[in-house]
Design a protein around this nucleic acid. Structure first.
Ligand SMILES: [Zn+2]
Ligand SMILES: [Zn+2]
Ligand SMILES: [Zn+2]
Ligand SMILES: [Zn+2]
Lengths: 130, 130
DNA sequence: CTTATAAATGTTATATTATTACACAGCGTT
DNA sequence: AACGCTGTGTAATAATATAACATTTATAAG
């Protein structure tokens, strides 16, 4: 059974907006959207984003400073994310590839480092943009 | 034979600073350092950084907004970067793992996307920080 | 050498992304 | 009640990055 986080009002509002978007949203664009709901300051957005990232409901696309909902409803892999990013249309897709995930999970370097997280971003051109 | 880019004065100054640091540097910390050499504005730094990234002399650590020199002097892999990042001391190391690189290079998703680049960041605790 | 073209520079201003600091509210535990 | 913890609201500010414009330098073509 999965631990069910109870989200607060602000967290729900922010998550809702991100989940309704198929593509990553930026913090200030989210802020703009939620002003009508009484969220007025960047910090309110960033705090909700931080929490949602932490519990795996959303992921941050580091190269884009944007946030996308995790489609995997039982996401065990908040700490193991893979994305493909089209450099033309900026379309972002989360990749779930068992073999690749396994390879990354099992990766050991030669420095004795203990990993607990990874983020992989592939860049290229999607079918439409080739 | 590898194409030898000729760097301009600003590019050399910025690259020099980054190469002298074992760890990633942030743009504004670089700016601070090069003021004594007559580079006064952020844009001068960012332009040099852009170029150096493009030709593979340095890499951007996306999750840290910082830049590190590529140690691989004949870097064929400006477009294929793997880093390990200690979340405690922020030590960053570029990883060269043939098997993993191969796996990533050969990765194909099921959307027909054409990749030309990837960036992978592992997070955890280094030996000293465990 | 002259002209054209691309790449880099210098400068100012501005945009975008993210955090610090502080006062306070709600909630479960002791 | 007192405490610790998490979240909230607000204002101010820090940190990261780009736009716009005028000028200069390097490279190539005629
Ligand atoms: Zn996910
Ligand atoms: Zn595309
Ligand atoms: Zn490298
Ligand atoms: Zn460490």
């Amino acid at each position: 059974m999965q631990k069910q986080e109870t989200l607060t009002k602000n967290q729900k509002i922010i998550l809702d907006i991100i989940e309704k978007s198929s593509q990553p949203l930026k913090a200030y664009s989210i802020l703009f959207d939620v002003k009508k709901k009484g969220i007025n300051a960047p910090l309110q957005v960033y705090r909700a984003l931080d929490k949602l990232v932490k519990i795996g409901k959303i992921h941050k696309i580091e190269s884009r400073n944007a946030f996308i909902a995790c489609k995997n409803s039982k996401c065990q892999i908040a700490n193991a994310t893979i994305f493909s990013i089209c450099e033309s249309c900026e379309d972002v897709t989360e990749i779930h590839d068992h073999k690749l995930s396994e390879h990354l999970r099992d990766f050991k370097d030669n420095k004795g480092m203990k990993y607990n997280k990874y983020n992989l971003e592939f860049f290229g051109l999607c079918k439409k943009c080739v």
